[in-house]
Design a protein around this nucleic acid. Structure first.
Lengths: 331, 331
DNA sequence: TGTGTTTTCGCAAACGTTTGTTGTTTAAAA
DNA sequence: TTTTAAACAACAAACGTTTGCGAAAACACA
């Protein structure tokens, strides 16, 4: 059926041994220039491509990383992945992407697949329902480094890279303070996520520290629709907020939908600020001010950490990238 | 370094042969129940996972598909991929995703990687700059089916699955006609893409067919920013459009930004309609009416076509999924 | 002519599986 | 008791590569 071109086939055709073919193809000094060109010519004519499976089996080195992730749905994850892919290519690695659809069972299966493929390392963002980190730790025991990113477990002794959650939140708070906002509707995500806790804490701490009289109305939205409803209700009462803070893109989308429904003008009627990677804020007019969380930068950081682990670094580190305020005109 | 658990290791520990272990693990009738359980127990204790490379090498069947794609940036591609992954899982296949960043050179490399990994088939959306289809066709010659999707080449004799570009555009046109719109700003994408040509033709044909006096102002926008400018200018003059049609999400984002800048109310001041997979239209209020192009459905179709090809179907087909109008209240 | 040194290549083992074939034991049928 | 079959397990080859080692040929030096 599939007439695969192999070293052996080339060897037979040229009346040489398989090992000679193999060496010729990779410019081994043992092989004469004459033989080498002869081999290479035939290889290109026949479009020989080495069998990745055989190589990996033989060398016992897959030169491959796994990225296990709830979903590539967001711009943030997309830019993270692209960033890792780019670095991987530079270092001769390739990347396989495993989506779990935010399902812990599928996540387990994906980890298993990583193991079966003997990946050199795993980049992982856990699902919102992942409670047991054991299977990840087991990989580590088998010398397969695991770098958690973005959605990281609370467990201490593991490698994590994150956006500076605290910093981004507190910078947003400072921006609100600078604009002298007095009543800020503040919408955070799922209470149980560590990312929510971190952002919430830094956010409220910042307001406390500055001792402004700002009123903070804190809500939690599990999805876009909930954020939509929260904003609607917040503006239904008598005392209306003069600013809205959103913890993420998902929440921003819902909040802005409500802003449109209520026909609020921003920044005149209400100021808006969010934490984002930068795609969604730019589709509104005026563009939404946000504190940046760069998937691209995070990818670079995660990759360098991965290389360090492969090189033998054994201490678990928690690293983060900094953030900055991007003014869009919505605050 | 990496103490890999292999069949051989299990065999030594249990004083059995490798083949017995292998058979026990897969419930081969030759193996006694007693031995089988003994083997399975040890395997779970030691967390044995079969080496995927060895299996693939031995069986010469990778049970793996490649998806080569410019970028997973859009919701449409994301849902296509998820859909294919879902089907693949059902049939015991896995999927590797190769992004080219819309770079034909990287696209070539990704195809090579598919070949090196001896994938069972390739799903491909070509880059906007891909002119030479040869390398794709070569895969076909080597019994590796290629199913083009969404961004497909003009070349006839290949397998393509597309959203019903013509239908979606003409349905949008009919919706505009039904609402008795008189002056429609119609923004299409890159002139050279076949997808643009198809949508444009059906769109204008539909208006001609219905012999309405509708004025159609056609523009082409290469990106979101251009769409933004086009809308701004269209509304700068005296005679303002009473509706805007967008060919894609990318264009819709720019158009809506302009609508917000101009403080136009929709559907009162201006009607909006677009072609989309459904994510972006839903973040506006009121939600944007659109004719649907489902990445999910397209994935299912592509996969079934792939299975047919693997089963031996040799005729090249061009298939498409239908579309429907989703009313959002913007028209 | 003999010894030593390159140069160039082949042999064979190994990576972890799967699977057709063969061999041994046990138990049932004659 | 012998024959036959069934049950169970081992042997060995193969998938395509890489690589340490050895071998043959060519050449140089004495």
């Amino acid at each position: 059926m599939k007439p695969e071109v192999t070293l052996k086939k080339l060897a037979v055709m040229l009346n040489l041994s398989v090992s000679t073919i193999s060496r010729a193809l990779k410019n081994h000094p043992d092989i004469s220039a004459e033989t080498r060109t002869k081999v290479k010519e035939l290889a290109t004519v026949l479009e020989y491509e080495p069998n990745a499976y055989a190589i990996h089996l033989r060398t016992n080195n897959s030169k491959e990383f796994g990225i296990v992730i709830p979903a590539i749905s967001s711009y943030f994850y997309h830019s993270f992945i692209s960033s890792v892919e780019e670095e991987a290519r530079r270092f001769g690695y390739s990347v396989i992407i495993l989506q779990s659809g935010d399902d812990p069972v599928l996540e387990q299966e994906n980890l298993k697949k990583c193991k079966q493929n003997r990946v050199s390392g795993v980049f992982a963002a856990i699902t919102s329902k992942t409670e047991d980190i054991q299977s990840f730790l087991k990989l580590e025991n088998q010398q397969i480094p695991v770098i958690f990113f973005d959605k990281v477990p609370a467990f201490e002794a593991c490698n994590k890279v994150c956006v500076a959650d605290g910093l981004a939140a507190s910078m947003a708070a400072e921006a609100l303070i600078l604009k002298k906002k007095l009543a800020v509707l503040s919408i955070f995500g799922n209470k149980n996520l560590s990312i929510t806790k971190k952002r919430l804490k830094s956010y409220t701490d910042t307001f406390k520290k500055h001792k402004t009289g700002t009123e903070i109305f804190t809500f939690h939205a599990g999805n876009t629709e909930e954020a939509f409803q929260i904003v609607l209700q917040a503006f239904a009462g008598q005392s209306k907020p003069d600013a809205v803070f959103c913890m993420s893109d998902e929440i921003l989308a819902g909040a802005m939908k409500a802003v449109q429904k209520l026909a609020l003008r921003f920044p005149k009627d209400v100021g808006i600020i969010t934490i984002s990677d930068g795609y969604l804020p730019k589709i509104y007019y005026p563009e939404i001010s946000y504190t940046e969380t760069s998937g691209h930068k995070l990818g670079k950081l995660a990759f360098s950490r991965m290389l360090a682990c492969i090189a033998g670094s054994t201490v678990a580190q928690e690293l983060s990238i900094d953030s900055k305020l991007i003014e869009g005109g919505s605050l």
